[in-house]
Design a protein around this nucleic acid. Sequence first.
DNA 1: CTGTTAGCGCATTCAT
DNA 2: ATGAATGCGCTAACAG
Lengths: 339, 339
Amino acid sequence: MNIKQVAKKARVSTATVSRIINDSSLVSPETARRVWRTIRQLNYHPDSQARSLVSGRSRILGLIISDITNPFFPELVKGFENLALQNHYEVILNNTNYDPARMATCVRRLLERRAEGVAIMTSEMDPELTDELAKRGIPIVFLDVGSVRNRISNIRVDYAQGIREAVDHLITGGHRRIGFISGPMSLKSACTRKSAFLKCWRAYGFAEDNGLIVEGNHKIDGGESAMSRLLQLKPRPTAILASNDLSAIGALGAIRLAGLRIPEDISVIGFDDIDFGQFTHPPLATIRLSRTELGGKAFNALYRILHGDSKKGEEYNVETHFVARESTGPAPQPGRQTQ
Amino acid sequence: MNIKQVAKKARVSTATVSRIINDSSLVSPETARRVWRTIRQLNYHPDSQARSLVSGRSRILGLIISDITNPFFPELVKGFENLALQNHYEVILNNTNYDPARMATCVRRLLERRAEGVAIMTSEMDPELTDELAKRGIPIVFLDVGSVRNRISNIRVDYAQGIREAVDHLITGGHRRIGFISGPMSLKSACTRKSAFLKCWRAYGFAEDNGLIVEGNHKIDGGESAMSRLLQLKPRPTAILASNDLSAIGALGAIRLAGLRIPEDISVIGFDDIDFGQFTHPPLATIRLSRTELGGKAFNALYRILHGDSKKGEEYNVETHFVARESTGPAPQPGRQTQ
DNA sequence: CTGTTAGCGCATTCAT
DNA sequence: ATGAATGCGCTAACAG
């Protein structure tokens, strides 16, 4: 079932059918109606591959993430995909599983599919691969990677704002010993978050105490073990900030396991605001980062380069904000500390 | 950068280059080497659209799910995508958001992309759309939809086994009043799970008590409100089976809110075995359904139709099993029931 | 307003 | 073992 058959059945040329499919304005309403009828009748669906080939526009976007089972990503994907769908783009989703080789494979395949733009939402990116894309003029949008260049945009997450709000909240509550559970230092995004915390902490004029900073793995079990290490400290921290909610949830478990109360003995704050945070015990205070917004902005960044006036890349900003919930409270009195 | 330029630079014909890309056996090793070198040098990537057009094979598979932010799906997607990647297929992922109109859009677009197969992992499917695909001979795999036909396979989840194990466990513990929190009855998959429970319950010779069956929404809040309704019953159930883990987690919250203990006062069992279940308080007993396996089997089902000997559809089976964790215990003695 | 024609990038005959 | 020529389904000039 191709355009020729439709043309024959409707007694017009293929060009007319093509016009009707794409831009019915240049064709008489009557023939248009007739042809549309034949199209429906024959259940004709134009071949996008052929259209892409001749038009040079694939209407495919690549979306590269590290791992869809990481609760950070599903909302991002949904936000991106919704807009893509509305604008008649297809999305090819790729999990790299933090594997550079797999990332390379994905990029090569997106190249072969002639993707019109690529959103790279994981910071572990080989610059050589970026060049591959850039050389061909394919728009790219990064997440928290600084290089805005021609046809390369970047979404910057303002971690500082949310962290400042959270630390403010803790300090107001009398906390002075704040532990930090970081993500794996092999991940650039985890480093960024840690630096943002340290910077904020120093801005308050506090000395930075490396003993209070423990590395987790951005998963629940890593948060648990990181927290149990923090609990060894004497005096132990009165509050914990975690690099993501999963780590914080692990921390909740470790604290409870040690027989301590939240927030009476220790306050805990997460990061990201994943859905589950509302349902932990106690509900987890966190720093919200809207991943839906992130996904949406990633799409828009590509769209602006593809269709906007400015072919140059732009910098986008996503805010973060503290969300108070029951996992934080005032610092315990030093004398009354148990154990 | 196309095949012609490579051919010119390597002083061969385009046919030779094409042969080398696809099937280097019919070409002299020496020219092959030379051409490969040029290909790398020019950084040539064959255009999949053009290849698809002439070969009639798009190497695209559609994966239709209802909502990627539902924790049921990410692992399924990952399992499917991993195999697809290995076998050089591209995956176009579509969230329908439970919207039939959106489902129709997705199917139409997959048709236009000439997808070679479609995995429909949500039961809310208009039969008309299925026909659209079937008419064109596009392989389909469904999840828990009974119609194995030509080029249409089905993955059947054996809910009964896991439910039987769970109910066995409860009955052995002395439980006789077991509440069931179902999913939304507007979803076919939720109905299937509920029927499986009822069937199992009757198989034990117990009467079915509609008061013990309450409808949730497969999310945490729905589980909470369903549970609080169940807590009104006198005598109240001593154990709860939920249609998915999210509902069960909501139930945990409602039970604790009512001042009752888990599992001393009420036992709770979920369904699916999502990662979070291990970290709730107490850890959630559940009925495991491997979504990774599900995604993998979905891919294999399509692959078998595309490349296997049997072009007819097949029935696949995925088992479910009870996973004991601390949210269950023996039934409380009737006399000692609080409140 | 509509038809004719060329060619997008590639795989595949059919020759040689 | 290699090359020349054809056409996949469609859009875009150009012509009328």
